[in-house]
């Protein structure tokens, strides 16, 4: 086969691989073509051809980078989540409520953490499911790298004596295992003593509406006294969480765990109300698309009006 034919053949192969989505194989072939074209001077318009091939190589490399890059598991549509729950709930059909637990666990395993946590939180109400639901909630938070939140949740459960001693021990050893696997340095009691004691909340989780955003005065730092509004990214009863962009450095420095926010406006789709809150945590997100941003958590302790 002469050189010209060989180049044409390789180029056609590269194009076909690319059209079949075999990007790595396509890239290799484009590079082979480039090598062949460079090695001969008898080709007309050599520079033009090389330029075209270089462009193909660049585009294919970018596509590979995009598909290989780190990704968080996407949240899928509700009907797809229902299918996951229905088809992948492998549990004891005789056990009461087990299909609800199995469904929530299936969602968690497919990375549908928010929905899984929402369903597992509901299952905490049931004596027979509480232990497994709690363990899986902790698992979900750790999988998302919200270790600090998992710790505070665990501590909250301990403090409120949600579990009898035997179950509390079981959760503690499970939680320690999770932290070990995640490579997190942990000493639960030590962590607990380092934390500021959170003020108790006057309100029940059931009393709190879904909150879409909050507005409050920054208590310290470069933006002290300024009013800001933040959107809620997650809510679990009286705990609300917001994401602060890493670019908002002044804002990040103006609020810290332990701060008491005396005047917060809570905006829900159906009402606006005011109250008090306590900054229970502020953590830099260390993985995923929000890496480098900050997660701020506020515990609502009082509703005024």
């Amino acid at each position: 086969m002469d050189l010209g034919e060989k180049i044409k053949k390789y180029f056609k192969e590269a194009e076909l691989y690319r059209s079949h989505g075999l990007l790595v194989d396509a890239l290799e072939k484009y590079k082979s073509v480039e090598g062949l074209v460079k090695s001969t001077r008898t080709i007309r318009n050599q520079q033009g051809i090389l330029k075209q091939i270089a462009l193909k190589i660049e585009l294919t490399s970018k596509k590979i980078q995009k598909s290989d890059g780190p990704k968080t598991t996407p949240e899928v549509a509700e009907d797809a989540q229902s299918l996951m729950k229905e088809m992948f709930s492998f549990d004891d059909p005789e056990a009461k409520g087990s299909s609800a637990l199995g469904g929530a666990i299936a969602l968690a395993k497919f990375g549908q953490y928010d929905k899984a946590i929402e369903e597992l939180n509901r299952l905490l109400e049931y004596d027979s499911l509480r232990l497994d639901a709690a363990k899986n909630i902790l698992w979900c938070w750790i999988q998302q790298n919200y270790t600090d939140y998992a710790v505070s949740l665990y501590q909250k459960w301990r403090k409120t004596k949600l579990f009898p001693p035997e179950e509390a021990d079981s959760i503690q050893s499970y939680f320690n295992e999770l932290m070990d696997k995640a490579g997190v340095d942990h000493e639960i009691d030590e962590l607990e003593s380092q934390r500021t004691v959170e003020p108790d909340s006057e309100i029940d989780d059931d009393e709190i509406l879904d909150i879409s955003s909050v507005r409050f005065v920054l208590p310290r730092g470069p933006k002290e006294g300024e009013k800001i509004e933040l959107e809620i990214s997650f809510q679990s009863g009286k705990y609300i969480r917001m994401i602060i962009s890493r670019r908002e450095k002044d804002l990040i420095d103006s609020i810290n765990p332990g701060d008491l926010l005396k005047e917060i406006m809570f905006y829900s789709p159906v009402a606006i109300f005011s109250g008090e809150g306590y900054v229970s945590s502020k953590n830099e997100i260390d993985a995923g698309p929000k890496k480098g941003d900050y997660s701020l958590e506020i515990k609502i302790i009082k509703i005024v009006s």
Binding site: G21, S67, T73, P74, V76, D79, A80, L83, M84, F110
Partner: peptide
């Protein structure tokens, strides 16, 4: 037929 979330034309789930 349900294809749960594909990335381009690649199956994710």
């Amino acid at each position: 037929m349900i294809s749960i979330d594909t990335e381009g034309d690649r199956t994710l789930f």
